[in-house]
């Protein structure tokens, strides 16, 4: 077996309507590049990136999903194992914002209760086409008690920050607040290379 080159493994999931830029966000984060020429994601895609947080090497296993309804049975099976979910909409497309509620319901139904969530309003570089105001995005996030950020995969705005904040939130949760309060802490199962969720 290969030697473990990381301390922790976090599984993240990107969801949201088709065309909001999930694949572009992931590509920007993993390869630090932007491409307008992406084919549509069918089923589920996968990327890995290792980041360093508070002196710990954290391997992020990120699953990118297809947006259309047809693929939901396939993609919802990944919700269960996810420790963090990024819910993406497109600030230039009202409908994708309205559907946030629908996606949140999906998370409630299929994901672990304590999954860390974050809402991303993508394409923030396209100010002249904006139809969803920042305030509206913030409001829905506040209403559901979720972190929120506006991003641009194209202009590389807030992409790294979004992933590190999400990873940090998971780290806080899984590792409590370091030794002193270790006694009354519930033991958290730190996932290893092999995922524990069932599939197939």
């Amino acid at each position: 077996m290969a030697k473990k080159t990381y301390d922790l493994l976090f599984k993240l999931l990107l969801i949201g309507d088709s065309g909001v830029g999930k694949t572009c966000i992931l590509f920007r984060f993993s390869d630090d590049a932007f491409s307008t020429t992406f084919i549509s994601t069918i089923g589920i895609d996968f990327k890995i990136k290792t980041v360093e947080l508070r002196g710990k090497k954290i391997k992020l296993q990120i699953w990118d999903t297809a947006g259309q309804e047809r693929f939901h049975t396939i993609t919802t099976s990944y919700y269960r194992g996810a420790m963090g979910i990024m819910l993406v909409y497109d600030i230039t497309n009202e409908k994708t914002f309205e559907n946030i509620v629908k996606w949140l319901r999906n998370i409630d139904e299929h994901a672990n209760e304590d999954v860390e969530k974050m809402i991303l309003g993508n394409k923030s570089d396209m100010e002249e086409k904006r139809v969803v105001s920042t305030e509206k995005g913030e409001a829905i996030a506040r209403e559901h008690g979720i972190r929120f950020m506006e991003t641009s995969a194209k202009a590389n705005i807030n992409i790294d920050r979004a992933f590190s904040e999400l990873a940090e939130a998971i780290l806080d949760k899984t590792h409590g607040k370091e030794p002193q309060d270790a006694a009354d802490r519930v033991t958290v199962n730190i996932p290893r290379e092999r995922n524990s969720n069932r599939c197939c």
Partner: peptide, 13 residues
């Protein structure tokens, strides 16, 4: 199978 690498991850597409 041991890696729990389901066929959905690749062969669905």
């Amino acid at each position: 199978h041991q890696q729990e690498l389901c066929p959905q991850y690749y062969s669905f597409r």
